[in-house]
Design a protein around this nucleic acid. Structure first.
Lengths: 333, 333
DNA sequence: TTGTAAGCGTTATCAT
DNA sequence: ATGATAACGCTTACAA
């Protein structure tokens, strides 16, 4: 910066004012001179020094289990875009389910002004610890202490979706997924049970436990569909499970939806292009991320607040895999 | 830090040594005392101050167009994991095809020690500019100046895949994709043409231009398949295009692969679970990212070098959509 | 093994 | 509108 100042014949204060774009106004002629000098000497501001002086990293951190599947990528993309307009950079960290995730986040925390923590990444105690030090927003996870929480609605949609299946006349509907793996999945399981009970049916005592990947959906659905009194409908906790389940039905020679109805969750991009097109529930992924960024920003700018809880609505997407007539919903233009 | 030092009855130098984990060794008893004090006063290092003092941000930046589809997410995940083991944080920035991407990257550059730039994000001049200031690794993009480049092999695989289609007896094979959209796509188009010429056929003068999304694949394939002498095989530049194309064939009542063979590229997770299972080419996504991180690290640690070019091999994945017997390649366990 | 003190490159306050 | 200069919180010779 001194170099630029010399080159332009001004003080570093002035250089800072024009390059940093703040502080007292600078004469336009001077601005041009400084800009020219900066370019001439190939100068660029140092973010670290800047952060130290301003007491602001100008960055937020987001911690997620991994990036497989469209869910995290979608949310993070929305988060990144919102952060960008707020002038924040975003640092990412995947825990990969490691037990030392806490340390990872602790390290991250030294470089950011706020943290977005997805469910299933760090234990509650850790959340409390971080929330004490900086604004924290939780994503898809019950509120902890003073941290804010953003979630997508699950229970009512699950109830509606299971109700829809009931409306098709199914009496043996299995839930394929792992309610214990995340609060979101847990609520889908709850909503599903409520729908069955609402129809005076006894929901199964336990779900057909299944991780959120195609291969697991294929395996578990294969097992379930081979049983004596196999279910006639599969309520899958994610589109990926559902895709695997469809493949399993196919392999067993069962027609979907005529012999087995299958529904998913998420509305991944391919969902409408497979055959039969998948009935599912769409989550507002990008919005989830954008809200998280916005909420974090108020925590960063403002005083430490109480912590909000926001629940974003989801949308039932009825296509063909549930048994509805296959109105072609694919874009024709 | 002074607070901790007081609390522990030592100097800030000692605190730095134990908390920073470097410099001269510290007596174990002292270490414990400092650690305890730090916890007691709820102290955490300040990354900005640290970066300023060490002249190292301990972070790398990655710039990509967006996060839709599995490609970027896969590469970035591999990148992040490798960076983590190298002790680097990763900052992400999506350009969303904006023209002011350069400024975005310029801002990012003030906070990182190195940059990973995906193809189609910033112009060559900008790459040169950044490469002059810090290590830069290009991903899926021809080499520019002193920047290193990592790519996945495209041409030979495309030749092999098109050759495979030829082997099935197809004589009218269309290329669906946009060679101009990325160097990768361009090479696939080249390899495809080479294969046709190698079989003494005249490749079409132009590809069936199509963006990399299901909806576009659906639209373009629908148009192509409706033509008089419609192709009997579709060589799609991505799995997403292929999925859309399959749906289009389906909508037209054409059986895949009996009436139209369709191949993709990428081997996205659902590719093996759709019906028919997609014949495609698998790219080593995570490895691309990991290599980028590693290459960047040598640039950061070492002296400014000449810039390497690494091409990672891809793998032909023959399944059913090309017309091969549908050996069930789904996991059964 | 530990302490002292000089930076690291900005921003921001206070003069001018 | 611009200039001097004191922080900002840490690391790291150099001393002890």
């Amino acid at each position: 910066m001194y170099t630029v100042a010399n080159h332009a014949g001004v003080s570093i204060a002035t250089v800072s004012r024009v390059l940093g774009g703040r502080g007292a106004p600078v004469r336009e002629q001077t601005v041009r001179r400084v800009l020219a000098s900066a370019r001439a000497v190939g100068y660029r501001l140092n973010g670290a020094a800047r952060a130290l002086a301003t007491q602001r990293h100008g960055a937020i951190g987001v911690v997620f289990p991994n990036l497989s599947g469209p869910y995290y990528a979608g949310v993070i993309l929305g988060l990144e875009e919102a952060a960008q307009t707020l002038g924040q950079s975003v640092l990412i960290a995947a825990t990969h389910g490691r037990p030392d995730a806490e340390d990872l986040v602790r390290g991250l925390a030294t470089k950011v002004d706020g943290l977005v923590l997805f469910g299933r990444t760090v234990p509650d105690e850790a959340v409390t610890e971080f929330a004490a030090a900086m604004p924290v927003v939780l994503l898809g996870r019950p509120q902890v202490g003073s941290a804010s929480t953003i979630r997508a609605e699950n229970r009512a949609s699950a109830r509606a979706l299971a109700g829809h299946l009931l409306g098709h006349g199914h009496t043996r509907i299995a839930f394929v997924g792992d309610p214990a793996s995340s609060p979101d999945a847990g609520e889908r399981w709850t909503g599903y049970q409520e729908a069955l009970r609402g129809a005076a049916m006894r929901p199964p005592l336990a779900p057909e436990t299944c991780a959120f990947r195609e291969a697991d959906g294929y395996r578990v659905a294969g097992l379930v569909l081979r049983r004596k009194r196999a279910p006639t409908a599969l309520f899958c906790a994610s589109d990926e499970i559902a895709m695997g389940a469809c493949a399993a039905a196919d392999a067993l020679g069962l027609a979907v939806p005529q012999q087995v109805a299958i529904t998913g969750w998420d509305d991944i991009p391919v969902a409408r292009f497979v055959s039969p097109a998948l009935t599912t529930v769409r989550q507002p992924l990008a919005q989830l991320g954008a809200r998280a960024a916005a909420l974090l920003q108020v925590g960063i700018d403002g005083p430490p607040g109480p912590g909000e809880v926001a629940t974003l609505p989801t949308q039932l997407v009825i296509r063909a895999s549930c048994g509805c007539p296959a109105a072609d919903q694919r874009p024709t233009a």
